[in-house]
Write a protein that binds this DNA or RNA. Structure first.
Lengths: 288, 288
DNA sequence: TTGCTCCTCACGTCACGTGAGGTGGC
DNA sequence: TTGCTCCTCACGTCACGTGAGGTGGC
């Protein structure tokens, strides 16, 4: 039998940790003195503790460890849990590597001449979920009235079958380079899942995207597109799909459909627009 | 001005996060209605929020971010912080990769025939700090009385100058393979830092070591040595220095010196011994 | 007897999440 | 007027860390 202090020294954990494992029902002392409350541990419990610490090191929570150890040892369940953890670990490894790339990018941009608060990126990287849309695609002479018309008719069509989802409409630029004249564009209206029966829909797939949001008239897009490209370059990312512009707040005609008030702007100064660029790492990430 | 709900949607954070940043003094709303307490955010604050999120993503705490952003932008301080974070990130990346190797090792040992609770390793990996010792090294015919004598005289020598540190004595096996006959061994007594003036000392350097602790007579060492080797192989680790055995609780003569009671055992059944193997990854870890 | 070990509350950490219960805005 | 948005407590999360204040053991 070991007193808690000796036991903790041998296992190189704190007494508080042992208290905690006792409370959590993970490792109950072999004997507890009824009068003094002193905890005494058996030599064999040193091994149990090491197993607990091994599993904790692999990233399991104390609850999971209790589940894995308490009712006998089930190698199959253990294998399953390990496989789950493996996947989590791999993706967190990739995430950390991406983080490191972004950190290096920021560092590099600071050591350049124009070190300014502007160096801290406003572009954010996120994983976009797949989204159902009703869309119309065509080539337009310029990004003006023609595009507006595409959205109006698409909105009206979706409104007729009451399939509008509560998400912002967006425009996809299908040309390899962003261009404003003679552009191949697709106007997309998010629709509810399950609207395929009543409507011509397609799914915009899940992607990693870089995003920047800005307020004001649309003429800022080219500037932000440049900023986006610089960010991608510094972050070690490459364009992996067509660019798109999401309209969070905008002006609309509303003939044949109705939009909630909070998405409508009366002045172009109040427009809220987001530029999105699907991206993929230039350096392929190491997986298996 | 945006209401908090719109602002949070645009930035893809929760309202609660904005509340939290307000409380933390990180991002105070441009205007707060005195009557209703409603928070209103300016369009320019969207950028500030993105910068905050960028830095948070790189792993900075909210406190650190406040420090970096609040009193003007200091590129030098930022660069310093980034460099610190870079080091942390690199080492956590290495740790995660090692974790993955250990997970795979455990997984492999489970799919083998003898899937048993024993598969969960009791060997633990840790970083040992450098340690000052007084030692004597010699070749001994067997690991018995001769070794004991080495420890007794070393303890007595250390005791004379009152330089004993509160740590367990250990034996280093200098032969390339663990052997019990005609072995080149070194008995080490931990001493206080600053004892070099009065005593012949050396420093056992910092190392990554695999450890197993057991209780009972010394005859278990060979068995645990085997277990240690199997663990190293599965974990992708190689022996990187001489093996050692640490005596946490043992029998002693105490002629010419005194040990605290809790390290003394009256029966060999109560001995507590730890086997330590300095290790290094077989696959060199990727750094820069 | 003295100092050391151990005990049980109770609160803190970090970045929010999750209700409860209530009020303002369109 | 109704439903929606927003508000402020207040407590929970996870694996312990950090005292406070007190008692047993050698």
């Amino acid at each position: 039998m070991f007193r808690i202090g000796d036991f903790s020294r041998l296992a190189r954990v704190t007494i508080k940790t042992l208290h905690h494992y006792d409370e959590a029902g993970l490792l109950t002392p072999a004997r507890v003195d009824h009068l003094t409350g002193y905890r005494y541990y058996a030599a064999a419990q040193l091994e149990t503790l090491q197993r607990i610490l091994s599993l904790k090191d692999l990233g399991f929570s104390l609850d999971e460890i209790r589940g894995l150890l308490e009712r006998g040892f089930d190698p199959e369940r253990m294998t399953e849990r390990l496989d789950e953890r493996r996947i989590q670990l791999l993706s967190s490894l990739e995430a950390e590597q991406a983080r490191l790339r972004r950190l290096d990018a920021l560092r590099a941009s600071l050591s350049g001449a124009g070190a300014q608060p502007q160096s801290i990126p406003v572009v954010t990287l996120r994983e976009a979920a797949p989204i159902d849309v009703h869309s119309r695609r065509q080539r337009v002479a310029s990004l003006g009235v023609e595009v507006q018309k595409m959205f109006e008719t698409a909105e009206a069509t979706v409104a007729q079958v009451r399939a509008r989802a509560d998400a912002s409409p967006f425009l996809i630029f299908h040309d390899p380079e962003y261009c404003e004249a003679n552009a191949d564009v697709e106007a997309c209206i998010p629709v509810k899942a399950g609207a395929q029966a009543r409507l011509d829909t397609r799914i915009v797939p899940a992607e990693s995207i870089g995003c920047v949001t800005y307020r004001g008239p649309y003429d800022q897009t080219p500037v932000l597109y440049e900023a986006m490209l610089r960010w991608m370059e510094r972050s070690g990312l490459a364009l992996a799909g067509p660019l798109r512009e999401v309209y969070h707040r905008f002006g609309a005609d509303q003939s044949g459909y109705r939009l909630p008030n909070h998405v409508l702007a009366t002045s172009s100064a109040d427009y809220v627009t987001e530029l999105q660029a699907p991206v993929a790492p230039l350096v392929p990430t190491r997986g298996e």
